[in-house]
Nucleic acid binder design. Structure first.
Lengths: 341, 341
DNA sequence: ATGAAAGCGCTAACAG
DNA sequence: CTGTTAGCGCTTTCAT
């Protein structure tokens, strides 16, 4: 009678039904407020269920209803700060709507990504959110997502070709423009650009924004000094920073906070005062920004908003299949002012 | 016949069976290499399955087998760098063994944690990994995990009372000792301590390590200068750092990299040379360490190893229920040397 | 207000 | 080698 009677196997509707002396259907109705059940009956059922420690089996429910009440998340990485923040936002939003999250990482390995994708369909996820911060995902994966007919939201990444899926991105070009505009408004007119490897979407997009801002202000962007480090981390970029400083810029816009930190170090080597002699702006508004000296002004991406929006769009699609149509959304960046500019 | 015949509903074993002209069981056997199936048959089945775009339904399989092939992860947070790194390691290891991950965050809200826990059992997860970096989890949750008879591994957190579950932790006291020992060996003998709020496990554990190291070296730890900031972030601790510097220490051991960054700033205010006049050591080996100037020596926690070990222990338990017994494992920290010490 | 019947898709155990 | 039978736990539709 008490919960301790049942050993290993977990309590089922039938167990409760037997205990109460009705059929499983009545128990089901009582528990889920479905059919009409007399108040007394409902009370007894609920009570017994509690006593027996009943836990409805979601696997069985999902199988029967065809809804897993779970979303798959396919992330290029989990440990990256940006990805983790987005994942956290996704989790939070999904939770609010009663959805669980199945998470897989692929580290840009297309094999692994496709495999994870198959697993998501095998588990009959209601939908999938793809987090691919660098947009380096192999085309095959994007195709995979599309053909597996799982409702998908891409984020960060804008899938190539015709858009049959939702897409939530950040306008990084706008972010870069915002930073450079700000420098220009501060009266700086010899602004340099520092980024990581050429060819990376991050580099190219932010460089475009940099050039657009200069051009809009009447400068010839092609003459603006620029350099490209091996990577975006603070371990890199110091020699490139020194190289840029040779041309005596009055500001440097960096495509990452790590590189901006390197610029600060290089500036100190040369006894330059930041921001008086040299303004520095980074990108990402990461934890580094508060740790450098001076603290770093940086472009902030609304990554949490991206996460939330992914979930919202996906759920909207699931709940309103008729009046849904694929849509690409671009969110804007903000400039977070600190000491370096 | 071709894959395009099937519209919405997904392909089942029965569909393939019908197509091939056998029973679902044969298809099942062929697909899973179970019963003996003639090579020719197996070939035809595999071929047809591929053609029809068959995706085995894991929900159904789990329901039938009683194994979800999935682990639940209950994290205090996802966006924290440490948590995200551990999560990534867990994901990686689980993936290797063919397990999926269902992830939920509770932000130390006991209500939410219990709810997430129920959801994990409702989904019949094979086991749960609890990531609770600050060990602030309410006792109720720990109890919940224990009573829900889901195999659980606690990490970071050592559950109160008798240990009925596995536990993988990091010996932070050892980490602190290691840092202070190092400073002592460098000839420093006026070492101060800076941390965040008192009462937090992080503060107290690292303080204990600090004092143990001093005592072991023949110093009276109670006289060592110490201060406690409002928080562990680089936004805090600067005034506390200045306060400590009044007593002219030759080294400061900080309970976080953020606070260590604040110390570096304070030191610069006073024209102290780091490490010549003042050595500084942080804790966590976070991204900040490479961004400060000078770069920060810091204590590194083997968080990825913790994640992997959680999965290994859990899977071992699942696969060898008989010769499993709860065990608490403590991993050691390393000191990562950079410029500040 | 309650129940009966059927099915979701897969698997396990044993029979032919 | 292949098929039969039964069941995992829940839901849905339709009777009563």
């Amino acid at each position: 009678m008490s919960s301790s009677t049942l050993e290993n196997r977990s309590v089922t509707l039938a167990d409760i039904a037997r205990e109460v002396g009705v059929t499983p259907i009545t128990v089901h109705n009582a528990l889920n407020g479905k059919g009409r059940v007399s108040p007394g009956m409902r009370e007894r059922v609920l009570e017994t269920a509690r006593e027996m420690g009943y836990q409805s089996n979601l696997l069985a429910r999902s199988l029967a209803t065809g809804r897993a009440m779970a979303l798959g998340v396919l992330a290029y990485r989990i440990e990256s700060n940006l990805a983790a923040r987005q994942l956290a936002a996704v989790e939070n939003e999904a939770q609010k709507h009663g959805y669980h999250l199945v998470v897989a990482a692929h580290n840009h390995d297309p094999q692994r990504a496709l495999e994870a994708l198959r697993e998501m369909t095998a588990r009959r996820m209601d939908g999938v959110i793809s987090i691919s911060s660098t947009a380096n995902m192999q085309p095959g994966v994007v195709e995979g997502l599309k053909t597996l007919q799982l409702p998908t939201v891409f984020s960060f990444h804008e899938p190539h070709g015709p858009r049959e899926s939702d897409c939530v991105t950040i306008d990084q070009q706008q972010g870069a423009r915002k930073a450079v505009d700000f420098l220009l408004r501060q009266g700086r007119n010899k602004i340099a650009f520092l980024s990581g490897p050429r060819g990376r979407l991050v580099t190219e997009t932010r460089l475009e924004g940099f050039e657009m801002a200069l051009r809009a202000a009447g400068f010839e962007p092609s003459t603006a000094p620029r350099a490209f480090a091996e990577d975006f981390s603070p371990r890199h970029g110091k020699s490139e920073a020194h190289q840029l400083l040779e041309s005596k810029p009055d500001a440097i816009f960096c495509a990452s906070d790590g590189l901006a930190a390197s610029v600060l170090r290089a500036a100190r080597d040369r006894w330059l005062r930041v921001p008086a002699d040299l303004m520095v702006i980074g990108f990402d508004d990461s934890l580094l920004c508060e740790a450098t000296d001076p603290t770093l002004t940086s472009v902030q991406m609304p990554i949490e908003e991206v996460g939330r929006e992914c979930v919202r769009r996906l759920l909207f699609r699931l709940e309103n299949p008729q009046d849904w149509s694929p849509q690409t959304q671009r969110l804007n960046c903000r400039l977070i002012r600190r000491e370096s500019a």
